[in-house]
């Protein structure tokens, strides 16, 4: 547990000093909203379309961030140092997933209001509680799977390409669930609660992949 917090604190401090990942994710999301505006030729969206745009944007931004997750470890020998330390190896997984979750949450603090201003037709305010529930569960999936995929891809030659091509199919069920769950929230005819069925699926997906990641993560570090 202490190792997890140590690594997490290190990652956050690193991000605070370099501002490398989070601003890039925010800028990427904002540009994507602009791109969607022009690509779809719509100035205001609602319902399923709005849910789709938001979740897809966050998904790609998350993959962008996940690609950077282990770069410092790889470039500066952090893996070796971590392996030498007498700590549980899964604490690295927990720390990285937590960092990723925090990055995503911070990204959404900026990106969701921006989405509300730029693209969303219906007012954002009353929709926030339902949206937060969906996004919290979606972020968990993005964080866990993003960390796992990033850890697999970090030691490959073509890691910038490997992590999205593995990550996208793995995240598809989560995308389906979050887009479907967010659709009624963004409905033009008054905000509805996110359907419990999809929240449940999203939560189950989070739990199952957290267990899988926990089971296999050790083998990605062994050297």
């Amino acid at each position: 547990m202490r190792a997890t917090f140590a690594v997490l604190a290190k990652d956050l401090r690193l991000e605070l000093r370099t501002f490398e990942t989070l601003p890039a994710m925010v800028l990427f999301s904002l540009s994507t909203f602009v791109i969607f505006h022009f690509a779809l030729g719509r100035s205001a969206v609602g319902g399923q379309l709005a849910a789709g745009i938001l979740t897809v944007t966050l998904l790609f931004a998350a993959l962008l961030g996940a690609g950077r997750l282990f770069v410092a470890e790889r470039e500066q020998g952090g893996f070796d140092a971590f392996l030498l330390a007498p700590v549980d190896r899964t604490s690295l997984l927990a720390a990285k997933a937590a960092a990723m979750f925090l990055f995503l949450a911070l990204l959404e603090v900026v990106a969701v209001p921006a989405f509300g201003v730029l693209l969303l037709g219906p007012a954002l305010g009353p929709r926030l509680p339902g949206l937060i529930a969906v996004l919290a569960l979606a972020d968990l999936a993005l964080a866990v799977i993003g960390t796992l995929v990033s850890a697999i891809a970090i030691h490959t030659r073509a890691r910038d390409m490997i992590s999205p091509i593995i990550g996208l199919p793995l995240l598809l069920p989560a995308l389906i669930a979050s887009a479907r769950a967010a659709a009624p929230v963004f409905s033009v005819h008054g905000s509805g609660a996110p359907p419990g069925k999809w929240l449940l699926i999203l939560a189950l997906y989070d739990v199952v992949f957290a267990l899988i990641a926990y089971a296999v993560f050790d083998f990605l570090l062994e050297d």
Binding site: L148, I152, I166, P169, L170, L172, P173, I176, A177, I201, Y205, V208, I212, A213, A215, V216, F219, L220
Partner: peptide, 17 residues
Amino acid sequence: VFAIVAGAFVPLNFIAV
């Protein structure tokens, strides 16, 4: 590791879709 994750993904994905 990939094969294990992806193998477990097969049934999950079918349920979700």
